[in-house]
Design a binder for these strands. Structure first.
Lengths: 199, 199
DNA sequence: CAGTATACTTACTTACATGTAAGTAAATGA
DNA sequence: TCATTTACTTACATGTAAGTAAGTATACTG
């Protein structure tokens, strides 16, 4: 296989296993077996586990933040539409992670790896922190604009609303694991929407 | 040491390590070393890891649900006071887990173990589910009463509000890990309170 | 005080995990 | 076409996890 193909294939499987099983649960052995290559080959391409996870995390954070910035760009849509768009994003992720394995643990990689922060490299930990502040900044900007436009309910402060949205968005995935699954997350978003939006 | 003392000491350390490091990260070796006993002794008392974790989980769920039922009993206090009491509970847990280790990961055992659900026994998984529904029932009952009393803002539906509170309460701990720490969680609760309460 | 259950330890086994060193077949390029 | 790099594999080293079997000291008990 050509160099970039193998590298990408390894990262794809690694992302899946990291999200499902965490840092310790995503072993080189499992990744290699899934791909029909050897563990040593992964070492050849990435050097070590921390380095591989760093790359996976980098890609994930980049893609996710781009997607979120697009949804929450303040230009076009109303606050309500943005929250509806977030439900769409969550649904897509939920379906993606339920497609392959039956158990389906649609965690965010970020919130999952935060629990294994001590196993990550310093750079990895830094990336987690950076993601957290970027996420909050995105919501804060959008909510602040919505407030200026008079879209917010009188009892919803823009900064508080941004914090709540970030908390749900970053930690949302565990919710979908409980009975009730994705529908519960959807209801949470809609309930938040009703409370935040001017009626 | 007498039988109940050793058993309890093992469970205390296990709870701490499970909350901090998850199922895989809470090794018999670490527990034994912390206590100055041998790993085999833990096997003697509990049989195996799944059995130990089941007991720890049982105790934790029981204590936590009792405490939450007390805070959210509908008799005495207003909705706002209940949310303030929740902040107090969270602060206490935060301080507890920051007292010993410097890094301080004030996770909920429940949300932490949910990520390792596949490593738990069937009984363990069932206990997680049970906790989740009990937690939701507590909030739903309190919010429903608050609604009947006219304590809710017009744009806050009791069932939605219960879901949001449960989501924050069950997954709150990760929030305190990010920069900003506990203060952020506190702000989230206060923001929710402002939006849910009739102004 | 002999015997037995209790609460352990010692000394293993088995199973995986990461990581590394050495070798190799196929493509690449001077 | 010979040399070298690329993309691997095989085999091994090392560490760490759970779990177990057999032995031991201590306390209780008839």
């Amino acid at each position: 296989m050509s160099e970039p193909d193998t590298r990408q294939a390894i990262k794809d499987i690694a992302l899946d296993l990291l999200v499902r099983n965490g840092y310790r649960g995503a072993s080189f052995g499992d990744i290699a077996e899934e791909l029909g290559i050897t563990r040593a080959n992964i070492h050849y391409h990435f050097g070590g586990k921390q380095a591989l996870v760093e790359e996976v995390l980098e890609d994930y954070a980049q893609v996710t933040l781009v997607a979120l910035r697009q949804v929450w760009s303040t230009e076009n849509s109303s606050l309500g539409d943005k929250i509806e768009a977030m439900i769409g994003v969550s649904r897509k992720r939920f379906q993606h992670f339920n497609a392959a394995g039956e158990s389906g643990q649609p965690w965010s990689l970020i919130s999952r790896l935060r629990q294994d922060a001590d196993l990550l490299s310093a750079k990895g930990r830094q990336m987690l922190d950076h993601f957290g502040s970027e996420l909050l900044a995105i919501f804060a900007a959008a909510l602040s604009t919505a407030a200026a436009r008079g879209e917010l309910a009188p009892n919803a402060q823009p900064d508080d609303a941004a914090l709540i949205l970030a908390a749900i968005a970053d930690n949302a995935a565990p919710i979908t694991l409980t009975e009730g699954g994705f529908e519960r997350l959807e209801t949470i978003y809609r309930g938040l929407k009703r409370m935040i939006e001017k009626s």
